[in-house]
Design a protein around this nucleic acid. Structure first.
Lengths: 68, 68
DNA sequence: TCAATATGTAAAATATACTTGACAAAATGT
DNA sequence: ACATTTTGTCAAGTATATTTTACATATTGA
């Protein structure tokens, strides 16, 4: 699985740390880190929460990133 | 969690059974059924596979359906 | 240079996505 | 009316998403 650079970029654009994003969507920092580094495959509800926290949509952050 | 009627509709539009869709994305029929009925929260990779099988995008099938 | 913050990663535990097998009810076709 | 397919659902098991704790390195600011 490749890294999710779109997510990393969207977070950086808001000057938000992994920690802050994790708090915003109520998961651990390690979960955000693992998603950005492609270490696993999050649930769609978590993806939606992340999108809303960053002002993006699913297609913008999660479409065509993930290698299946 | 509410039902995912967009998914149900997209599948119906292709005259595809839950069984056939399940085979197309390599999961069990019960998994497709549970997703359509909102019984749980699939992983994003499965959502992407479903979207590709149905010719839709994540935003079209999974955005704003799921109650968080 | 030092302290604080941000990131990468790992191991063990817990929650939950997903499977398999099975049965009943509803829908569809003939 | 009957047979077939489709859908809903349940229970027990397996795989994996996510947590907690912890430590090391990198980065940033005073």
């Amino acid at each position: 699985m490749g890294k999710n650079l779109k997510l990393k970029a969207a977070r950086a654009a808001l000057d938000m740390s992994q920690q802050k994003l994790a708090e915003a969507v109520s998961v651990s920092r390690q979960t955000i880190n693992a998603i950005e580094n492609g270490d696993y495959n999050p649930t769609v509800n978590l993806c939606i929460a992340i999108c809303k926290a960053l002002g993006k949509t699913l297609d913008e952050l999660f479409w065509e990133d993930e290698t299946m």
